[in-house]
Amino acid sequence: MSRLDEFPPGERRIVEAGRKSIGVFRVGDRFYALNNHCPHQGGPLCLGRTAPWVRSTAPGDYRVDGDHALVACPWHGWEYDLATGQSFLGPGEPPVRTYGVSVGAREAGREPGPYVVETYPVHVEDAWVVVDTATRGEESA
């Protein structure tokens, strides 16, 4: 979908693959690809802000933990893990549907939410960034 040297860290591309719109994100040297469709109400998820996790041990204590790992839908702010597509809710709120995602994913008081965005493997091949939409695309078709 792009030459590697034309896709610097911190940027994203929205690409069309058949009828699908897919957001590809470069965070440092890692690439993530998600379906550009928020499972909540169909918003353009991949146009939203990305952000890192923030940890806290007490009021006034903030610690940014790692690189940007979340993208928030611009419509209602639902946040999704860039790597797994998992949404997050508060603790004690069971997901409406369960998915094969580890329950150990509880983060900063938040537990996996009801939604999982479709994600796609991204590879770098011969200086090109390649998004593999075949595997899961075929499954969902």
């Binding site: 806290s56 009021p59 204590d61 209602h76 702010g77 639902w78 997050f88 508060g90 900063a108 938040r110």
Partner: peptide, 21 residues
């Protein structure tokens, strides 16, 4: 409060559970 906390929790990361709880 619960609903908005889910969206803007980042501002108050020490709120480690739902406000209602």
């Amino acid at each position: 409060f619960d609903k908005d906390w889910k969206g803007v929790w980042r501002e108050v990361p020490w709120v480690a559970g739902r406000p209602s709880e």
